[in-house]
Simulated scan of single mutants.
Amino acid sequence: MTAPTLTPAARPTAPAALRAEHLSRIYPSGDGQVQALAPFTHTFPPGLTAVVGPSGSGKSTLLNLLAGFDTPTTGHVLIGDTDLTALDEAARADVRLAHYGFVFQNHNLVSILTAQENVEFPLTLAGMPPRERQARARELLAQVGLEQRGGHLPSQLSGGEAQRVAIARALARDPGILLADEPTGNLDTRTGERILTLLQQSAGAGRTVVLITHDPDIAALADQRLHVRDGVVTPD
């Protein structure tokens, strides 16, 4: 079965560019320090960028810095003209809500909410009226092939279905930036390919999609690749 086609939402302006400038992260460790990410400068273009490397190489550290979940030791993360690293946590949360969507390995759906309600959740945070957000959630669930599963709880969905709901939720506010952390890691090969196709389609709609993976076969399908080893990031 092929993945459904994601319909690009109309954009009044181009999505804000994502850029890392001299970005690094050092953690204290015992009496010393561990360099989790060496100084790194890169502009992430629209399209799919795969960040590939073995476990513990620094991939998740990079993603957390790009999202503003962690504070860099040096450097900056820029979203257009906004310096994410210069903002307090409340302001960073506002930037994430406006510009980012997230897909995690374990989907991170709210267990007590239905699939429909999970997709609506970021729209509720944004203050969208109930009728509009319900219509938007139904549209997105249809785009990922789950229009008949909107009333089901996450526990009633398969792993692949839950991950598709997570993608629909990530796209709810039509973000310019989509960060995906090993989104196929817990899925079988066929289901993983379906999820990857949805991410490729999202990138094809003009978004900047950053995909963390340890799988070189998945990375080979991206528009560009970054390799991380021992905290050092190098382009393909």
Rank of each mutant, 00 (worst) to 15 (best):
L187Y: 11
L62E: 04
L78T: 00
Q201R: 10
R138E: 12
I167C: 13
P4Y: 08
E117V: 12
R225S: 10
I195C: 01
T74K: 03
S202I: 00
T82C: 12
R131S: 13
T7S: 02
I177Q: 05
V233I: 12
P46E: 00
E182R: 12
V209N: 11
T189I: 10
A219L: 06
T74E: 14
L87S: 00
I195N: 08
T85F: 10
A115I: 09
G75Q: 04
I218D: 08
R149D: 12
V52D: 04
A205D: 09
L109K: 03
G204P: 01
I26Y: 03
T41K: 06
K59Y: 01
D94T: 15
E139L: 10
P216T: 10
A86L: 12
L109R: 06
A20M: 04
P130V: 02
L48H: 00
L18H: 04
G151C: 11
I79A: 05
V51N: 00
A168V: 06
V119R: 06
M1W: 11
H99P: 03
A91G: 03
A162E: 04
I112E: 14
L87P: 05
A16M: 09
E193F: 01
A91T: 13
F102K: 09
P8K: 07
A180P: 07
T191W: 11
T85D: 03
S57R: 05
N186K: 02
L109E: 01
A38N: 12
G75T: 03
E89A: 14
L123S: 04
Q143H: 09
A86V: 10
G75E: 04
T74H: 14
A135P: 07
S111Y: 01
G192E: 01
